[in-house]
Design a binder for these strands. Structure first.
Lengths: 241, 241
DNA sequence: TGACAATGACTGACTAGTCAGTCATTAATG
DNA sequence: CATTAATGACTGACTAGTCAGTCATTGTCA
C-alpha cells in the first residue's frame, strides 16, 4: 500500500523546546514556566490530558480516513506530535485504542439523544428539531464519519456493534417509538404500523450520512430538505414552517 | 508481538512440508486433482475459468469478512484451493483483485435494476415488486454484504465509489425519479417534492441491509414488512392485496 | 531561595513478526 | 516434446509493540 502522501502541517518535533527561557513572571508556586511558554499554566496532569486529547484526535482522523487495519500507529503518533511509545502510555494496544475511541466519540450522540424531546407543540416539530440537530451536528460533521466507521468495522468488532446497539440504537428506537405513539394518539400520524418500525423515521438520516461520505462530490445532497419531504410523507403535507 | 491483532482464529499450519506425491495421486484432496477428477472433460480454458471462479468466490468471502486491508491473500488462496502464485495469473495485484471483484459482484445489481419496471398496474405494485426482489435477493443474501463493503471501503477506493455511483446509484435514481413522476401524474403520489429525493424511496432498503449486517443478532428485522409500511406512507394506506 | 535528588512521562531504536508479490521448479496438456 | 499452467518457498518492505535511557518537573532541605 502507498504510504502517506498528505500529512498536512507537519507538527514540530514534539515538545523539546528547552531553553526558551521565557520572561515569565514566576508565580510563587509553579516555577514551571519554562515549557509552558505556549500555554499559560500546564502542570503534569494537564499536559498529560492534552497529549491524550491530541492522540485521540489524531487517531480519530487516521481511523476515519483509513479504517482500523490500514491505520499505522506511527502515523497516529506523528500526527499527534508524540512518540509511538507514548501511545502505549494511554492505550493498551491498537484494538483498545480503536474501541475506546469509538466509545468516546459516541457519547455526544447519546447525550444529544438523551435530552428530553421537548414536546411542547406538535410531535412533528419535535421530530423536525431532532432531525435538524442530527443533520447539522452529525451528518454534516465528522461525527457522521464515525457512524460510517461503525458500519464499516462493526462486523469485525462485535463489541463495538453491541455497544452501539445498546447505547444508541435501542435507546433511540424506544424514544422514536414513544414519539410515534404519541403522534398516533394525537392524530398527527395515521399509519399505526409505523410504531413497529421506528427505523423508518431515521432511515433518511442514515442514508444522508452515507451519501455525504461516498457521493457528495458527485451529487451534493441537501439532507435537511430531504428530511422535510420525508416528514411530509409521515405527518402529511403542510405549508407553513 | 507483531500485527497478529486479528480476531479470527488462525487456522493451524496443517500438514506441512514434503511434496506429498502420493496423496495427490490417490485421494481427491488436492485441489488440482479434485478439479480434474470431477470434470473429466475439462480443457484448459474451462479449468482456468473454474479456478478463476473459485478465486473470486473465496476472495469475496474473505473481503466481506475482513475488509480489504485485513484480508490475507494466503487465506484467499487456501480457501480457493490454489497456490498463491495462481492468484497472480488471474489478477494483477490485491487492489485490482478487490476492485474487479466489486465490479463483478455489482453487475447482477445492474442487470436486476435495468430490467424494464413492468408498469402494467399501479406504480405502487411495480415499486413493491422491485422492493421484494431487492430485499429477497440482496438484503437477505450475501450481496447485501457487498453493499456494506462498498460503504466501508468506498472512501479509500474512489474508483469503486465512482463506479458504483455511475452504474448503480445514478441510474437507480433516474429510474426511481421517473417512477415517482409517473405516480404523481397518475395521482398515486401526492407529494410532488418526492421526485427531488428518490433516495427517500430506497432509504429503508439501505437501512435494512446495514441492520442485517450489524444488528440482526440483537433484533431481527422483517425488512419486507417494514418496506410495506414505508410504501403505505408514500402511496397512502391500502388493504393488503 | 537556590541546589540537589527523585520521579515518571516521554522517546525512538529495536525486536519479532507479517504478508504482498516473485520466480525457479514441477506438472499438465495438446 | 514443447508450451503453458500451477506451485509454494522465498524475499524484502513494512509495522505492532517493547524497553532502556533521557530529561523536564516536582519535592526536599538548608
Amino acid at each position: 500500500m502507498a504510504k502517506r502522501t498528505d500529512m498536512p502541517t507537519r507538527t514540530p518535533p514534539a515538545g523539546r523546546r528547552t531553553t526558551i527561557r521565557a520572561a515569565a513572571a514566576k508565580t510563587p508556586k509553579a516555577a514551571s514556566a519554562k515549557l509552558a511558554a505556549e500555554r499559560p499554566a500546564a502542570n503534569r496532569a494537564e499536559k498529560s490530558a492534552e497529549r491524550r486529547a491530541a492522540i485521540v484526535a489524531a487517531a480519530m482522523d487516521e481511523f476515519i480516513a483509513r479504517g482500523f487495519a490500514a491505520t499505522r500507529l506511527d502515523d497516529v503518533a506523528k500526527r499527534a506530535g508524540v512518540a509511538k511509545g507514548t501511545l502505549y502510555l494511554h492505550f493498551k494496544d491498537k484494538e483498545s485504542m480503536f474501541e475506546e475511541l469509538i466509545r468516546t466519540a459516541v457519547v455526544p450522540l447519546i447525550d444529544r439523544m438523551a435530552a428530553p424531546p421537548q414536546i411542547t407543540g406538535p410531535v412533528r416539530d419535535a421530530v423536525e428539531r431532532f432531525a435538524e440537530t442530527f443533520i447539522h451536528e452529525i451528518a454534516e460533521t465528522r461525527r457522521g464519519d464515525i457512524i460510517r466507521l461503525i458500519v464499516a468495522e462493526g462486523p469485525r468488532f462485535p463489541a463495538i456493534a453491541d455497544f452501539y446497539f445498546r447505547e444508541v440504537v435501542s435507546r433511540g428506537m424506544a424514544a422514536m417509538r414513544a414519539l410515534i405513539q404519541l403522534a398516533i394518539t394525537r392524530g398527527e400520524i395515521r399509519q399505526r404500523e409505523l410504531a413497529q418500525f421506528p427505523q423508518l423515521i431515521v432511515a433518511p438520516a442514515i442514508v444522508a450520512v452515507i451519501w455525504q461520505s461516498l457521493f457528495a462530490r458527485h451529487a451534493p445532497l441537501d439532507a435537511l430538505a430531504m428530511f422535510r419531504v420525508h416528514l411530509d410523507l409521515i405527518f402529511g403535507e403542510r405549508r407553513t414552517a
